[in-house]
Structure formats: C-alpha cells, structure tokens
C-alpha cells in the first residue's frame, strides 16, 4: 500500500482504558474511533456502526469488542464485524504503537458515498 501514510494521532495514555477517542478527518470523510482495551491493546475502526451509523467511539468497550450506543449491536474491534445474530461490518483501520505514540495508516483517497439518481 504505497499510497497510504502513517499519521501520528496521539499517545496511548490519551485514551482511557476500556474507552475510545475520536479522530476527525476533512470533508465528509467519516471520523475514526481509536479504542484501548483493558489490556492496553489498541484498535481503530471507522466511527460508524454497520447498523444505522451510530458512533462506536461512544460505546461500552468490553474485551475486544464495543457495544454501539444507539441500539446495542456488539462490534468486534479486530475485524469490525458485528457479533451474531446481527450481521454487518465496519471498516478497520491499520495502526501501530511506536513507544507510547499511536500511528494510523490512513488510506490516501477514499470516496464519500455519492447519490446515484437513475431512471426507473
């Protein structure tokens, strides 16, 4: 992925254990949620629930999953997948920890959803 870039977005300690913080992006790109588990593992997901777009960064973090605040779907942090019986998936964002700093791999170009009008 030569076009991706690593971006420093802050320190591990900036995120509470069993918590998340949000990283915003320009122009209509959805924000990213960065999670920290009880064991100091970190994960990043696009901050949108696969159900109806709820902000996952506001959910309750449990093990390696988060419960969406809007209707309670549980999303796995490593895969972005919803736990059964719900079905759906949220995009994961690669990241790495260098010392205490969190680096995100941000896709260079990402199209926002467009509206396609078609004739019947």
């Amino acid at each position: 992925m030569p076009s991706d870039r690593w971006t420093d977005i802050g320190r591990l300690d900036d995120i509470p254990r069993r918590g998340a913080r949000r990283v915003t992006r320009p122009d209509g790109l959805p924000p990213i949620a960065v999670f920290r588990t009880a064991d100091d593992e970190i994960f990043a997901l696009v901050d949108r629930c696969p159900h109806l777009g709820g902000p996952l960064s506001e959910g309750i973090v449990q093990g390696r999953a988060v419960a969406c605040p809007l209707h309670g779907w549980v999303i796995e942090l490593d895969s972005g997948r919803a736990e059964a019986p719900d079905e759906g998936c949220t995009q994961t964002i690669a990241l790495r920890l260098v010392g205490n700093r969190i680096l995100l791999s941000l896709p260079a170009i990402e199209a926002a959803d467009g509206l396609h009008w078609e004739a019947a």
Binding site: G10, R25, P26, P31, L104, L106
Partner: peptide
C-alpha cells in the same frame, strides 16, 4: 476534558 475533545484532527 478528554471526553469533549477529539484525539486528533487529520488534515
């Protein structure tokens, strides 16, 4: 305060 601030704003 961390609750009400974004962690980072990427350009």
């Amino acid at each position: 305060a961390h609750e009400y601030r974004v962690l980072a704003a990427v350009e």
